[in-house]
Design a protein around this nucleic acid. Sequence first.
DNA 1: GCAAAAGTGTTTTGCGTACACCCATGC
DNA 2: GCATGGGTGTACGCAAAACACTTTTGC
Lengths: 239, 239
Amino acid sequence: MGTALQKTIQQLRSENREYFQIALSVDCVIFGFDENELKVLLIKSDLEEFNDQWSLLGDLVSPDENLDSASYRVLKERTGLDDVYLEQVYTFGDVNRHPAGRVITTAWYSLINVKDHQLDLAHNELHWHPVTEITTLAFDHKKILDTCLKQLQSKIDEHPIVFNLLPEKFSLRELQSLYESILGTKLDRRNFRKKFFLMDWLIDVNELEQDVPHRPGKLYRFNAARFSNGKVKLEEAVH
Amino acid sequence: MGTALQKTIQQLRSENREYFQIALSVDCVIFGFDENELKVLLIKSDLEEFNDQWSLLGDLVSPDENLDSASYRVLKERTGLDDVYLEQVYTFGDVNRHPAGRVITTAWYSLINVKDHQLDLAHNELHWHPVTEITTLAFDHKKILDTCLKQLQSKIDEHPIVFNLLPEKFSLRELQSLYESILGTKLDRRNFRKKFFLMDWLIDVNELEQDVPHRPGKLYRFNAARFSNGKVKLEEAVH
DNA sequence: GCAAAAGTGTTTTGCGTACACCCATGC
DNA sequence: GCATGGGTGTACGCAAAACACTTTTGC
């Protein structure tokens, strides 16, 4: 039934030429956990207008680049890390959000283990900022950060993603401190331990903390085998 | 400290001209509830390539139009409704997702009361499809639909948004049937009623169903006063 | 009176929360 | 021996889940 109302792709393309004038960017909220604080990796804005303001790590998406590829590329370029945890959060598309023209941006957050890579921080003008101390950012990046943090907070209740922020082996205190940093609350230590052992997310590696000025805690690692492709193995979960 | 490394907006704009070649669209998953089924409003694709396939309601975003304005505009144009519930879900940006060029799309879902408006369905080639019967759609719209449905499912547990799908007055059976349609599960009737009365989301309007071939149920309306700007009035919630 | 759905309560179970004491280590 | 955090168990309350019978209406 090819009627006169139907359009070919060529027609569609030529009729809508004026729409193909938008730029798309990705902005990554890169979370790290260091010195018992949740931190975000920021860079000095390279725009005069935002002189001395910090901004998220982002880049324009090339017209022949997949959206998710672009966010992985930004991560790789800035941190040197592949295979990071990355999640799309929201797309910000107000007409005037960017001074250089119509640039809409898709916001992502990433969880990385700061010990895994050595940033050439000074040279790149990159810097880890405690999230609690960030009050303003360039563009609408503060709003983006807030949105991503909220998303992260609601996600960690049910999904075992915080382990991306920790080294291979960690103590329960570190884990609890991380949850507290993300949620911005204090948690009861005994209930926290009980909950995690019940969930069976952890494996005791039979090692102890080193060089702590008090009784060393046991070390654990994430029970990744319980999860395959992000899904719980129900057979095991029943036990 | 305006160094040589910093750029003016003019420089940025001219250097990145090749990036401003992307088109942006919005696609709306418009949910309705009718005949005890969750349905989605679809339109016959106007592209020859997708002849006889259904697609979501969407449109290109004008370079001088806010992203969220565009989704409201699509809703208004297609349904005649203002003031609808609309929520952004995800942005799909694979290079080859659209045959007419680089078109990335931001997906939204909307909840409307099908009784509120009379669609000129045949004329517009619009049609309500039960979600359970949709197997394929044009473009990547099936994936978009699935993503939006999942988001809806997780949202209704805690947020009183399903009332957007119901008429002003409704019975508890209708409400439960709606939850079951969205979640794809059966729910226990007594627990369902108990839970809703405890949550204090409903107001008894002291009317009964009409023209039902069995004992008529009481009618209720959504207790909108309990929520202002989407936030719970905590003072009242304590009672 | 029969079919169909409305309406109603109790019990059990699991989970989150609150809470206090002893233990191991470094200094 | 003292300071610091590690490690453990119990009791309570609430909310979800399981479950069956009586009532009202239309036909």
